[in-house]
Amino acid sequence: MKVEPLVSIIIVNWNGGKVFEECLKSLTKVNKPRWELILVDNGSTDESQLLINKIDFPATSVKLIQNKKNVGFAPANNQAYKEAKGKYILLLNNDTKATPNFLEPLVSKMEEDSSLGVIQPKIYLMDTDKLLDNAGSFMTRIGFLDHWGFMQKDSGEFDQEREIFSAKGACMLIRKSVVDNVGLFDDDFVSYFEESDFCWRVWLAGFKVIYYPKTHVFHKLGFTIRRQNVLDMNCHYYKNRISSLMKNLETKNLLLVLVPHLLISLGISLAFLLSLRFRSFTMVLRALVWNLLNILSTARKRKRIQDFRIISDDLLFKRVGKKIDWIKFYESFKRVQNDIVRRLVTTGSK
Rank of each mutant, 00 (worst) to 15 (best):
A135H: 02
D129K: 15
F102I: 04
D95F: 09
L204Y: 05
R162A: 12
C199L: 09
W148S: 00
V118H: 07
F185T: 00
K153S: 12
E163I: 04
T99D: 07
I89A: 07
G183C: 09
I142V: 15
I174F: 01
R175N: 04
D187R: 13
M151N: 14
E161A: 07
L131A: 07
L145I: 07
E112R: 06
P121D: 06
A170M: 04
N181C: 03
M172T: 10
S114A: 14
D146H: 14
S137W: 13
V190T: 10
I123F: 02
I164H: 03
M126S: 11
E83F: 03
D154C: 04
F138W: 08
Y124V: 08
S166H: 01
F138E: 04
N181Y: 10
T128Q: 04
D113R: 14
L132N: 04
N101Y: 11
E112K: 08
R141L: 02
L125C: 05
K122V: 00
V118Y: 07
M110V: 09
M110Q: 07
L204I: 08
F198A: 09
F144T: 09
I123Q: 04
A98W: 00
L106R: 11
K168P: 01
M110N: 01
E161G: 07
L184D: 00
E161T: 12
F189R: 06
W203F: 10
Q152Y: 04
L106M: 15
Q152N: 11
G169Y: 01
Q160E: 15
Q152P: 00
Y124P: 02
A167V: 05
N94M: 12
A98P: 00
M110W: 12
P105R: 13
E161S: 09
F189C: 12
F102D: 03
M139T: 02
D133M: 02
K109N: 03
T99R: 08
E104I: 14
D133H: 06
F144Y: 13
F102M: 11
E163T: 11
E112F: 03
